[in-house]
Design a protein around this nucleic acid. Structure first.
Lengths: 345, 345
DNA sequence: TTGTAAGCGTTATCAC
DNA sequence: GTGATAACGCTTACAA
């Protein structure tokens, strides 16, 4: 059984000072001068006793939990094959750990949003919200906005004044489609990364449409399909697409994870990539360069997305001025073999 | 700006009862009888005011934070391509959310373990620890064990009495190697999923060795290489392996994520899978059936691993009896084309 | 420079 | 059945 908890009072006694002094020393309060000698005594006593301040008590007194909430709006099932999430986690945890903050990860399913956010916020369980994958129909977001709660979107929500870090999904999609156009493709299909409720999905679709338009190509809605985060959905949708005649000569799949499912469908239909169908993905997840053929894709700077949104939220929480409330990071196309260059045989 | 915080006192006033009553009603304390009428009054008042109990205060008073810590022992960088993690998260979040618990995710780098765990534990920041990927050299684990802190390993640590949920990695590896033996392979290489400090890696290696041994095959240590969680490491190690003569005819890569890197190396050397080199992976991550050729692999029941470890920790925290403290789940081989069957052309 | 005392918002232990 | 009152462990004016 654990030994009795060590409190700041124990430390105070051992150092022969008051609890106040202990608190002042341990929190390194600058506005007050404490003799180097007592400071050392306190630090030593705390160390000897293995004292760690109680987080709940600290949170209660400081009104800060030192926890930030990463909220995911997809269903748990969708997390399963989410290669983007791990990249985000990597960047986020690194950053927050440096600043002594912890990361609480929460999944909030559509239609429970409002409740769920407010619960977390009102309970002061978390000091700030990082929301990945905002949806148009998210009522909870409005509530966060109205309550002026520290919130940063990883993604974007037009018409909202919330802080956000994102890429220009529309422009990024154009990079992909432009590339295909330049290779001479005239019949290009689109498979969305997710349902259009997700702002990123609808923006990527917009990029696709506008790009076709300015190239003077017709928009054929039989060539537009909707993936749903996982490879399985890409496999199915590509199967549907391959039933359309005339066949497209190229497909822009707005998610690498979905694209890998599409690739299997293409192979199973006896078609070759890129000779019969060229493919462009989106995200540049780690495995995209390892698939066969390596996937041409739009690079999403996941790590930086995470870092910047982390920084921004950190400023918000500390009530520091936030110079730029809406950040758009650059994307670029990573050309690999799935769109044609020098494929063997 | 947020409206003034609503406290239980506000609810009490509005319902014309005391704070005690509010607490009793809202926490649904069974041991005490409260008239249906006042109960309703309280609930209504709480609802009207949008009252949510303050988490820190609750944690302080109950000595329970309602947070469990998921601790990862790899470096943030390794998280990036960790397809297993997302599967675990899926299962875990679902389970804990059901029980009103939150998940704090923490990365602890080797050699900071002891400090880091104890910090979290002493601060009572978390009520329990779920540790994924235990390492032999983990000092912090011993500390958790000694302090009798609710802890469940996702993975295993021989010689430890901690609760754990895992698969029999050694036996699972044998499934893979046996399969290759039955296909007639005599020269089989091994690429570990991670350095041998990780218990899972060393167990899988043991399975490989023992399996060769009982088949009467020689053990050639030039055929044993060490991946490091990501595809890149698989690519590099496979490159090294392909320099060994005579070449192996089959490779067991103890991680699908590492295997996908190995596949690229094999292709780039102009060799075919499975004709020139057969490949077996481990984990059965979602994308493994979508690569080309689809990967034969050992199925790791990630979702169940998560659920069971979650349940176990939940029992531990509630001080319920835990019938089985060390659980081993079944694995099975998923045979796909990377080991030979009916590959086209 | 250090100590005293009053919160922070709950829950838990008693009397009533 | 309900209501004072004391923890819970820390921070922070304010006093000394």
């Amino acid at each position: 059984m654990a030994t009795k908890r060590v409190t700041s009072l124990d430390v105070a006694k051992r150092a022969e000072v008051s609890r106040t002094t202990v608190s002042l020393v341990l929190n390194n309060v600058q506005s007050i001068q404490i003799s180097e000698e007592t400071r050392q005594r306190v630090i030593e006593a705390a160390h000897d006793l293995g004292y760690v301040p109680n987080a709940a008590a600290q949170a209660l007194a400081k009104r800060q939990a030192q926890i930030i909430g990463l909220i995911l709006t997809r269903s748990p099932h969708h997390i399963t094959s989410d290669a983007f999430l791990t990249q985000i986690l990597d960047g986020l945890i690194g950053f927050f750990q440096q600043h002594g903050l912890h990361l609480l990860i929460e999944i909030v399913e559509p239609h429970h949003q409002k409740e769920a956010y407010l619960q977390l916020v009102r309970a002061k369980h978390i000091d700030g919200v990082l929301l990945s994958g905002p949806r148009f129909d998210d009522e909870g977001l409005r509530a966060l906005e109205e309550n002026n709660f520290p919130t940063v979107l990883i993604g974007q929500m037009s018409g909202s004044s919330l802080c956000s870090v994102d890429v220009d999904n529309c422009a990024a999609a154009k990079l992909a489609v432009d590339h295909l156009l330049q290779l001479g493709h005239k019949r290009i299909a689109f498979v969305a990364n997710a349902p259009l409720d997700f702002t990123a999905a609808s923006e990527r679709l917009r990029g696709y449409r506008e790009c076709l338009e300015s190239a003077g190509l017709p928009f054929d809605d039989r060539l537009v399909l909707y993936g749903d985060f996982d490879p399985q959905s890409g496999y199915i949708q590509m199967g549907n697409l391959l039933a359309v005649r005339p066949l497209p000569s190229a497909v822009f799949v707005a998610s690498d994870v979905v694209a890998i499912g599409a690739m299997l469908a293409i192979r199973e239909h006896g078609l070759r990539i890129p000779q019969d169908i060229a493919l462009v993905g989106f995200d540049n997840v780690p495995f995209s360069r390892y698939v066969d053929p390596p996937l041409t894709t739009v690079h999403l700077p996941a790590h930086e997305l995470a870092r910047r949104s982390g920084e921004m939220l950190y400023q918000l929480i500390r009530q520091e001025p936030v110079p730029l409330r809406q950040i758009l990071l650059d994307t670029h196309l990573v050309v690999r073999q799935s769109t044609g260059t020098c494929r063997s045989e």
